[in-house]
């Protein structure tokens, strides 16, 4: 009998997880059921991370395993089933800052959690965020910045989004470095993520995903 996919993925046993998925697919299991199990496992991973039982590399490792599961399952999915279900998220490192690794981790975790991520890169001009919101109607925007100089860029970007009449329909999270409530209030963002998992949780909450 196949081992429990949810528990095995939550325990980050990559080889076993992939073997279970292959076995299930061969046996004709519903691919959406496999993804649902994987989703539950990722919730457990998130809980373990919040309790400091897992660390950021574990989180990223779980995402990489999930990505491999998606690759195995994808050919078996219908077009509808294979679509991104989390909605669109625009993300970028604000103008003046060129740090990318934290942003890339958030992009990756959002992607494996079913979001359609528009990654604008680093040192993103303020107008680029405004234009991309207009083009995509993305309801969620993530502004990343590692240095203290990024706080002013975040504030100016949010002000420009507001001036363009887009703020009411756009939830904005900030992250990177040592962001606090005070900095969040200064920039005018709706929330901040102290790590990638919080970023995913915020995007899920705003997208109405449990």
């Amino acid at each position: 009998m196949a081992k429990d996919l949810c528990k095995t993925l939550a325990d980050l046993k990559e080889d076993e997880v992939l073997a279970i998925v292959e076995e299930k697919l061969k046996a004709g299991a519903d691919p959406m059921g496999i993804l649902a199990d994987a989703g539950r496992a990722m919730e457990i991973v998130g809980n373990r991370f919040s309790k400091s039982e897992y660390f950021i590399p574990d989180l990223v490792y779980s995402g990489e395993i999930l990505k491999k599961i998606n690759e195995l399952v994808k050919p078996k999915l219908t077009e509808e089933g294979g679509a991104k279900t989390g909605g669109k998220v625009i993300i970028g490192t604000v103008t003046g800052d060129i740090h990318d690794i934290g942003k890339d981790i958030v992009v990756f975790m959002l992607d494996v959690n079913g979001f359609d991520v528009v990654d604008l890169g680093v040192d993103v001009p303020i107008q680029k965020f405004v234009d991309t919101i207009k083009e995509t109607s993305a309801p969620v925007v993530g502004l990343s910045g590692f240095l203290t100089l990024a706080y002013d860029s975040m504030k100016q970007t949010i002000e420009a989004i507001k001036a363009a009449g887009l703020r009411d329909n756009t939830k904005i999270m900030i992250g990177g470095g040592q962001i606090t409530d005070e900095i969040m209030n200064y920039t005018g963002a709706d929330a901040f993520g102290k790590d990638a998992m919080v970023g995913v949780s915020l995007a899920k909450k705003w997208a109405g995903i449990k």
């Binding site: 590399p57 990223v60 490792y61 990489e64 990318d100 690794i101 981790i105």
Partner: peptide, 18 residues
């Protein structure tokens, strides 16, 4: 190299190398 790993989808490698 970190950027190459990131672009290639090898996020864990990118993060650890960083």
């Amino acid at each position: 190299q970190v950027t190459e790993y990131s672009r290639g989808g090898e996020t864990l490698r990118a993060m650890l190398l960083d």
